[in-house]
Design a protein around this nucleic acid. Sequence first.
DNA 1: GTCTATAATTCGATAGAC
DNA 2: GTCTATCGAATTATAGAC
Lengths: 207, 207
Amino acid sequence: MTKNSTINTKEKIINAAEKLFASMGFLGTSLRAIVREADVNLAAIYYHFGSKEELFIVVVKRVAQPIVREQLRQLKILEESEKLPSIPEVLTAFVTPPLRILQQGSDESRIHAQFMGCCRTELHPVQKKAEQEFRSTQQRFLYILTKVLPEKSPQELKWKLDLIVAMLVRTLNQIEESEMLSAHNSVENIDEFVQHLVTFISYGMSY
Amino acid sequence: MTKNSTINTKEKIINAAEKLFASMGFLGTSLRAIVREADVNLAAIYYHFGSKEELFIVVVKRVAQPIVREQLRQLKILEESEKLPSIPEVLTAFVTPPLRILQQGSDESRIHAQFMGCCRTELHPVQKKAEQEFRSTQQRFLYILTKVLPEKSPQELKWKLDLIVAMLVRTLNQIEESEMLSAHNSVENIDEFVQHLVTFISYGMSY
DNA sequence: GTCTATAATTCGATAGAC
DNA sequence: GTCTATCGAATTATAGAC
């Protein structure tokens, strides 16, 4: 069937692109390197995606969407609860979904994590496109934080949440050398690491 | 005098390179763009620096050295004190020198800050070269932290300090949009921001 | 949908005159 | 030290056959 081969080609390109973007960055990855890795023809990229930039956006969306969806799901649970959530509860809902990628331990998930971190440290002009995928969710977490911590100015909560994102990105990028997770990188210890991280940032959030 | 014009050409190149690297990254900046900005000849870069990569390293060193020197100076004061320093004291000595760049408020210092943050989010292979300029200093701060917090494992202190660096880098990179410093960006309020940041991370460091 | 071939541009780097 | 001119290779993107 024609459709099957198309899907395979498209996915092969996306997989190869994600892997190379994650380790070499947007500018450091040539379309020729991608087609070599994916074992497809150069023109196939233009047929399926139109340009290098649009391919990048497709990769970002594929990685970001399940994470954002899970963040919003956990946020919704907190919002629908009768009592006001605690700071650690909010922050756990925020940081757990992206860190969950690591739990599988497969090569594929390692690449997801690395790309997820890498795409947010990109520059001109693709950085804006990546940011866009996370902005509204981050906004919603910021909103609930203003409810939990009404005595803090929204500006302060905003830059603190922004620094938490920076830590998250760094954690995801560090998977390679990952001395960070050396004591936590086994599957069952990811939750323990998440707890450590949440504790770390929760105290700073309150004071 | 020949020497003067040489120095001027060299410095013109370094200044232009720092500015462009800071906003477009290493791969996003062409040598032709640098010579256009610096108003010098293309071949001058090769005469004075040898290659694009070596030029990048020179820029990194120029920005990093005064900051590292100041970090070590403040660390030495703490080490020579009779009593064991507190966590906020150690962290203040660590984060103040890089954030001090912002205090001047000039265009020049804004570029320094932006490059300082940007060069640490670079990829292949220049990232390693940039890291190298900060590694030994970070190691020394890590060492004193193990003395201040002997009940914490060195691994844990290492990744926490690493996350603090990530926050620092993010803060420096955010200068452009800088809603983060919107309430703090006046010259006299930098110290106030430093205090906020140190408080933020100190609590997380202890628990 | 997939392929070959190639256009059009840009890049880092070098040779050699002055 | 500074310049012009250029090499050789790589890049994104497209045209057109199948």
